[in-house]
Design a protein around this nucleic acid. Sequence first.
DNA 1: GTTGCTTTGAGGCACGTGCCTCATTTATGA
DNA 2: TCATAAATGAGGCACGTGCCTCAAAGCAAC
Lengths: 352, 352
Amino acid sequence: MDEKSEPADLLGILRPTTKDLARVAGVSRATVDRVLNGRDGVRPDTVKKVNAAIRDLGFVRNLSAANLAKGKSYRFLFVLPRSGDQFLEEIHRHIAEANTLYTSEMIRANVHQIEEHDPHRIAGYLSSLSSQDVDGVAIMAPETPQVRDAITRLRERGVCALPFISNQALSGGNWVGIDNRAAGCTAGTLLGRFIHAAQGKILVVAESMQSRDSLERRLGFDEVMNNQFHNLTPLPTIETYGSAERAQRVVRAAIDRNPEIVGVYILASEARIPGEVLEAARFVEPVVAIAHERTPFTSAALTSGLLDAVITQDPGHLVRSAIRRLRAMTDNLTTLNSQERIRIEVLLQTNL
Amino acid sequence: MDEKSEPADLLGILRPTTKDLARVAGVSRATVDRVLNGRDGVRPDTVKKVNAAIRDLGFVRNLSAANLAKGKSYRFLFVLPRSGDQFLEEIHRHIAEANTLYTSEMIRANVHQIEEHDPHRIAGYLSSLSSQDVDGVAIMAPETPQVRDAITRLRERGVCALPFISNQALSGGNWVGIDNRAAGCTAGTLLGRFIHAAQGKILVVAESMQSRDSLERRLGFDEVMNNQFHNLTPLPTIETYGSAERAQRVVRAAIDRNPEIVGVYILASEARIPGEVLEAARFVEPVVAIAHERTPFTSAALTSGLLDAVITQDPGHLVRSAIRRLRAMTDNLTTLNSQERIRIEVLLQTNL
DNA sequence: GTTGCTTTGAGGCACGTGCCTCATTTATGA
DNA sequence: TCATAAATGAGGCACGTGCCTCAAAGCAAC
């Protein structure tokens, strides 16, 4: 493997076909086909013979040929919240890009937008989908029992379902998004080490603590704070519920109540709303601030010095990874899944 | 695009074929074939008619069918230095993994190892390759005129060449690896902000400053230091040349000469050699240390506290990205290239 | 009008697999 | 032993494209 291979190997890839399988297994191509595609009416020991041939020859189905024969195309659907923040806009843009990118591979990804805070409607919509309409669905939705059940039933109907960005507990590693606990830890470590004050309090702002993402980030953040930075005291999470007016009120109040604030951690994926409040606040002492997701706002805030670091996941990578994962799931290739870890990126003023 | 598409769209992807092209353009399939594959002997206005049909129908060649018909497989080659550091071992492992992952797509990647410090032999080996043997080559080699020329000639012979991890100036963005200047900036910012001392010196250790990577990292690092951290003075780069004995000597000497060292930046991709010297050094005051690449050594060093941050690029992602890029280049799909940016990852004790 | 050239058409086979049908063989139970 | 069912084989068509041959048509110069 490490050494240069034989020229014969470099010269071309001659892979065994179903004909070879039939020859080696001593059966007909029809029987090979029955085994390969799991049709019944084949004696167990015949199945064994064919499987042995598959193993011996190292047969791997030629997906191009199979897809061509089946006239197969991959129809994927992204179910996203309607709320139009800057991060989601990027996601939309990258789905459109991915469509042109993947046309030659017969992949088509559509988008369905849905009210984020209505689990019933999300579940209802998912229930309306069948394997007739779509091969795989990437779902970005808060974790609720309804959604969880809808996903389970969707899978039972033969549609691949992939939690997207918002984690779902049931997924068991099979989802696309960052490890939010690790992201919270990263935020905590950077904040702790960037702050030079002997002690002080940390303001923590989220959109809502109902989402699993925020919870996990806060969990990782607190873990680091408690273990490593005893001089710093994180305040209870302030929730904006996506409202600028409310953000203005509650953040302002927290700042007034706590003059010893030396750091700010914005958990929310839309940092603009709490960010603008902070910008107006003008702390007496310089405050270290960290937020999530690269958006026009956070990029500008890094440059201006309002933010000191931004922890982000690349939206293009998220989209393409989801598509690749859905395709792999559709084709029953489990191998790929472990490989598509989404990386946590740290943006600083100097590496934008 | 943002709204749910018509059921008809979801129900299946019926894409125009060359037959449709022939019908719409009012020519035969043979002529369509001549135009599509750039054969000559077609009148200019006939070409125009076909191209108009391609545009009107939004025709995109079905790559699966084309590859099947051509019996095409992708034969790729990774040309890597022989020096067996831990980072390269990971690369090897991921190439092997990628091979099983991509078999069903008719992709095969081999490895050729070569003496890193002999540009002549590298150039000679590259010259021996032709499009008969291989479709694309990912090359990890220091930038020298010989190698540069060999790459140019390789491309002229119809073999895709892709600089891999080690940048080559000529590549013009078409390479796989991180932005090393940005990585150096990241190192500088983290080091500067992690250090709480009022002032001090920074030890900078590289394997060799002859590689473009190291130069670019140092460039970004100095930029940040000069602009933002006037209290810190980076020392001239110490080179280990990959020798533990030499590292021991020169690093030790630098430490003895500069008692005011408050930070260490290890540029080299193999951090183990200088790292072990540092470990033995036992500074009087705690020193902030940053290195590159996740390896068993750096991971352990983060956990033990020897290192405070590791800036890394995911080897699996590098390998898979290179393969996808080579395939796109082979198929003349330029779109993908911009999308395959490799992310700089920051590892801390808390997010391993 | 003839010759010689260029351009176009018609048709077919191949790639590897999926999915049919129909005939034939083999095993099972009465 | 025979009837019936289960298992297997033989063969063919389809998918969309690449690539080939050979014939026919168009076109130019003589």
